[in-house]
Design a protein around this nucleic acid. Structure first.
Lengths: 157, 157
DNA sequence: ATCCATCTATCTATAGATAGGTAAATTTAT
DNA sequence: ATAAATTTACCTATCTATAGATAGATGGAT
């Protein structure tokens, strides 16, 4: 799942294969199918885990007394600067119509969760803030430079 | 190119094929290769045309005395509500690492153009505004509802 | 007569997926 | 405690579908 997540976050749903995952792990593609019978199964599981991990990280930030917006921004920025990875569900959302329903729904669940999380602290502004963050990652990856992310989100710091 | 653009904007770079384009046009895939030898050739051409068309539409809006932010917002919103399509280059940017260099560069050119265009009227805020718009399209398509786009961009109206 | 746009046919690569087999670990029954 | 049964996690081999791409033929337009 770690390997799959990384591959999806760099190449998208359609841009990775069971064989790539298998090669990276050092097994055969049939063995990946053993654990996750279909591609939607695999990607749904990865997306679900991603959302849960994200939620946990936010809880920890809250326990440290951090502002919600800052927590979101920092989490995304760290992923960008440490691994050059953008939000898993942002990528999935972009592929939209070609996603199997289960996967699309899991990506949507993340967005709903994000909007609700931000709305809780900044009523009515969740969608705007999450949009800004997801878009900033998109531009930043396109430009190949973290500066764009920083510039696009400096008002959220 | 119309067909290809629509397919890319719904399924992404990797999510459409020469055969789909050909079928929609009513010819064979080999005939599409006649006009655009390779897939990067086709998609680069589509992306370039997209940017030029966008630029023209902005010029027209400016001639009508419209605000730049409003012009950008309206163009994206119209695409979403009329055809359910998000920004071509937003989708391409998301696929990032799996794009052929020429295509990635064309997507980046659009983003640069957008940032510069918005910066010209709102200095230092171009990246933020374009991020917000691209992200809002992403969330909106994921939610399958224009309301999300409106909610995420109401401050830009 | 030549060129353009299309066709048919085909190549090679890769995709997701499945069938069937095997060795080792684990669980159950005696 | 040990033998038998089962399950786990792999494997090889293969199927079918589809991808991008190319070669060579055809027919109409200039």
């Amino acid at each position: 799942m770690d390997v799959a997540e990384r591959l999806i976050r760099t190449h998208g749903y359609g841009g990775f294969s069971f064989r790539e995952v298998a090669d990276a792990v050092g097994i055969k593609s049939a063995s990946v199918h053993y654990h996750f019978p279909t591609k939607p199964d695999l990607v749904s599981a990865v997306a679900k885990r991603y959302r849960e991990r994200f939620s946990d990280a936010l809880d920890q930030a809250e326990a440290r007394g951090e502002d919600r917006i800052k927590a979101w921004r920092d989490l995304f920025q760290k992923a960008l600067e440490q691994d050059g990875l953008m939000c898993l569900c942002g990528i999935l959302a972009a592929e939209g119509d070609s996603l199997p329903p289960e996967v699309a729904q899991e990506a949507f669940a993340f967005m709903e969760f994000g909007i609700a999380s931000l709305d809780a602290s900044y009523p009515g502004q969740g969608a705007r803030i999450l949009s800004q963050l997801e878009g900033a990652m998109l531009l930043s990856r396109s430009a190949g430079s973290l500066d764009v992310f920083r510039s696009a989100t400096q008002d959220l710091a």
